[in-house]
Design a protein around this nucleic acid. Structure first.
Length: 426
RNA sequence: GCGGCCUUGGUGUAGAGGCAACACAGCAGAUUGUGGUUCUGUUAUCAGGGGUUCAAUUCCCCUAGGCCGCCCCA
């Protein structure tokens, strides 16, 4: 094969489209029920936009970005996530107004240079929301609830919601210090990567699966115990509202998200049906990002759903909806005169809003019938020399195998009548 | 970036150091104008490159890709 898709990218083929469409349709529907409006931002942005928001020390920025210089010597990066671009766009277009809630949703491809694995691609798709303008914990719960509603709507079970709080500017530094101190005292027992993390990002040690680190992690101070008053009550109220909304969740003290902009609430939905890459949704609050990007001080919260993984779960779940197709007419022709008539008729059928197809390979009548059968045509209109001479055509119902003659003058009407109704004789 | 397993026709599989087998799909034909059954025929230099050998698709090495794990995350 001369060319193949690039590593970590794949073609999403027609067979899988019903599942994708179903997912997209349901996301859109729920987002709009919650009064979100769609926004589409560019696939690439300045590298700095991501470096600043996601964090220089994060894995995403330090090793996973598709970054290149354009012909104007600008450093460009293919978006690894959508929150930063959406925040940028919201500020740039004055979508965020004082004392007003702005709700945006998006859907599209993201890019991260990682080693491909099941459920992990270099070009992958996310759909998510961002809300600006409220620090109400009830909103946190609503946002989490929305993501859960989508899963419900899609009929997914075996999912669990994990939540945590990562504190804010005032309490996180203190916690980080304590954590650093704690791990430093055990540094010789930690794995190599965790030793590096001690300096770069001690928070992430909490996520380490290395057995030698695990036992220290068990006893590590938890951020929840270090939250400032504001963050603490915020977290408690989120829990309160989650209970009001009747959402099942697990508090995961070690849920650390890999993006630096998160404050207070973070959450994740994981599926028991996937492999190691089991997070299907992740998000959280980011109250400082808007002001850091030069907007007015505006709290915000959002999440992203990993669509590729959702599709996997949906396929496993067997809920792929077969997409509705039109009742299809196949026009079989024999001879040049018939072909001309067929081509004209084909156009008119389609102009009338009905699906139709005919042969362009020069197949025999038998093969045309086979083809009609293969593409599941409901009717076949047979136009042959004999029919044309007598001013008639043969119309065959492929399901009942009944057929009858129709006058060429009225063939369009006759066909339409049959394509509309199910009870016709042939 | 690291480790393990893997890569045979359109698809799914078999195979052995020396004619690459099977199923399904596809195409053609079995009434030179009619489908879904049946029958017949037909469809691959075994991912790419290099090496060992009289001989390799089968053994070895490299590369690419896939899967799984680490890492990270959606």
């Amino acid at each position: 094969m001369k060319y193949t898709s690039q590593r970590g990218t794949r073609d999403i083929l027609p067979v899988d489209m019903p599942v994708w469409h179903n997912l997209e349709k349901n996301c859109r529907k729920l987002f709009e029920l919650y009064n979100y409006f769609e926004i589409r931002t560019p696939i690439f942005e300045s590298t700095e936009l991501f470096a600043r928001s996601i964090g220089e020390s994060s894995d995403i920025v330090s090793k996973e970005m598709y970054t290149f210089k354009d012909k104007g010597d600008r450093s460009i990066t293919l978006r690894p996530e959508a929150t930063a671009p959406v925040v940028r766009a919201a500020i740039q277009n004055n979508l965020i107004e004082k004392d007003k809630i702005t709700k945006l949703y998006y859907m599209g491809p993201m890019f991260r240079y990682e080693r491909p694995q099941a459920g992990r691609y270099r070009q992958f798709y996310q759909s998510g929301v961002e809300v600006f303008g409220s620090k109400d914990p009830a909103l946190d719960a609503e946002v989490i609830s929305l993501s859960v509603q989508i899963m419900d709507k899609l009929g997914l079970s075996d999912l669990s919601v994990k939540i945590n709080s990562v504190g804010c500017k005032s309490c996180r530094p203190k916690y980080m210090e304590t954590l650093k101190e704690y791990f430093k005292s055990n540094a010789k027992n930690l794995c190599e990567t965790c030793n590096n993390r001690l300096e770069t990002n001690p928070l992430r040690i909490l996520d380490c699966k290395d057995p030698s680190c695990q036992k220290h992690i068990e006893n590590a101070p938890a951020i929840i115990d270090f939250l400032c008053e504001e963050c603490k009550t915020h977290f408690e109220k989120v829990i309160y509202w989650l209970n009001v909304l009747n959402i099942k969740y697990e508090i995961n003290k070690r849920l650390v998200r890999g993006l630096d902009y998160y404050t207070k609430t973070t959450f994740e939905i994981v599926s028991g049906k996937l492999g190691a890459q089991n997070a299907v949704c992740g998000g959280g609050r980011y109250d400082n990002l808007v002001v850091e990007f030069g907007g007015n001080d505006t709290p915000a919260i959002g999440f992203a759903i990993g669509m590729d993984r959702m599709v996997e779960v949906l396929k496993e779940h067997g809920t792929q909806s077969t997409e509705h197709r039109f009742r299809l007419l196949y026009i079989a022709t024999l001879g040049d005169a018939a072909k001309k008539l067929g081509v004209e008729l084909l156009l008119n059928i389609r102009k009338s809003g009905y699906a139709a197809e005919m042969d362009y390979i020069g197949k025999s009548l038998k093969s045309q019938m086979k083809e009609a059968d293969r593409i599941k045509a409901k009717y076949v209109l047979i136009l042959g020399e004999d029919e044309i001479k007598s001013g008639k055509a043969m119309l065959r119902n492929m399901e009942t195998a009944e057929q009858g003659e129709v006058l060429l003058d009225k063939v369009l009407e006759e066909i339409i009548v049959r394509l509309q109704s199910k009870g016709s004789k042939f």
